[in-house]
């Protein structure tokens, strides 16, 4: 009963946060000095033409009215029309979102698979030489600027060795029956390889360190000690008892990591010409295409907020010690 209530509360909070973010965005974009359409008014336009263009995007109305229209449209999933493309923002974003999600999830799954295994192994081999070497290396991968890492990988594996294509999601002119057929194709995987590798190298540090410290903590707990006293082999204790229990918080952090990753994708998508949401945001901001920038930003924020909520709920379910007082 209280569980349902709690979920309802969380959902209300989610709506509140989304509203707040949308409002902040609206104010940022509209209170900026200058005409928002300045970059799109051709110098040869007459004043009449300029006025028509302003009216076309609803910019001739008072600010509060624009805000109400904006909120009402948001509720209907209408993010307005792009200045740059003269097309509905929503359609473009929906075209790009799958590419970004595929990139994000596949890199995180690899990062988590690797991180969990190596993290558990480090906990097992604690205090040894491995620890002294691996931990600084892991910290270093997290300290590399992602675009720098991406450029180095691009130079080595694409330009130099020629193993992988340098950008995009498909070979020139290739056609697929559906998005799914594209994602399942070998071509797509070879295009996906380098950006995923870049992101995975960058993000494996978190699950690895988290897994290791959780393991160390769990291994001190009573049931593990019991198992040890019972004389079970060490690897069985580690794998069957400790790892299983240490895994839960790592799993919840996955949801959070999706939120973090999707905002950090921006640079990697740019390096690898990946047609995703992050690159679109950068383009839109550089082209002063406010509706599109706003829409892309909101979509990224929505993913972040939803992932935070999922992590929150998962945490409550998986770890009964936490009470949501």
């Amino acid at each position: 009963m209280s569980g349902m209530r709690q979920i309802a509360g969380r959902l209300a909070q989610l709506v509140f946060v989304l509203w707040a973010v949308a409002t902040i965005l609206f104010l940022m974009f509209r209170l900026m000095p200058g005409n928002p359409l300045a970059a799109y008014i051709d110098p040869t336009f007459t004043e009449e033409q300029q006025r028509i263009l302003m009216a076309r995007f609803g910019l001739d109305r008072p600010l509060w009215e624009q805000y109400l229209i904006y909120l009402a449209n948001l509720l209907r999933g209408d993010l307005g029309d792009s200045f740059f493309y003269r097309q509905p923002v929503f359609d473009r974003i929906m075209e790009l979102l799958p590419n970004t999600l595929v990139l994000t999830f596949s890199s995180l799954i690899i990062a988590y698979g690797f991180g969990i295994v190596v993290g558990a192994w480090l906990a097992w081999a604690r205090g040894g030489l491995a620890e002294r070497i691996v931990i600084p290396v892991v910290l270093t991968t997290r300290a590399m600027p992602e675009f720098w890492l991406g450029m180095v990988l691009l130079a080595i594996f694409s330009f130099w060795l020629g193993w992988f294509p340098a950008g995009g999601t498909r070979p020139p002119g290739a056609e697929y029956d559906s998005l799914l057929a594209l994602y399942a194709s070998r071509d797509f995987l070879s295009h996906l390889a380098l950006p995923v590798l870049t992101l995975a190298i960058y993000s494996q540090g978190l699950p690895l360190l988290l897994m290791r410290s959780n393991m160390l903590e769990v291994m001190r707990e009573d049931f593990v000690t019991m198992a040890r006293i019972k004389g079970l082999p060490r690897w069985r204790v580690v794998v069957l008892h400790a790892a299983r229990n240490a895994l839960l918080p790592v799993a919840t952090s996955f949801a959070i990591a999706v939120g973090y990753q999707i905002q950090g994708n921006v640079v990697v998508e740019t390096v690898f010409s990946w047609p995703g949401l992050g690159r679109e945001l950068v383009n839109a901001v550089s082209a002063s295409d406010y509706p599109l920038a706003q829409g892309a930003f909101l979509m990224i924020a929505a993913v972040v907020v939803v992932m935070n909520l999922i992590a929150d709920l998962l945490y409550g379910i998986l770890d009964p010690r936490v009470s949501h007082a």
Binding site: V17, L25, L281, V282, A293, F297, A301, V304, N308
Partner: peptide, 11 residues
């Protein structure tokens, strides 16, 4: 927590 950080800096 709902504001994506890097996009925010860009804007």
């Amino acid at each position: 927590f709902g504001i994506p950080f890097l996009p925010f800096v860009i804007v």
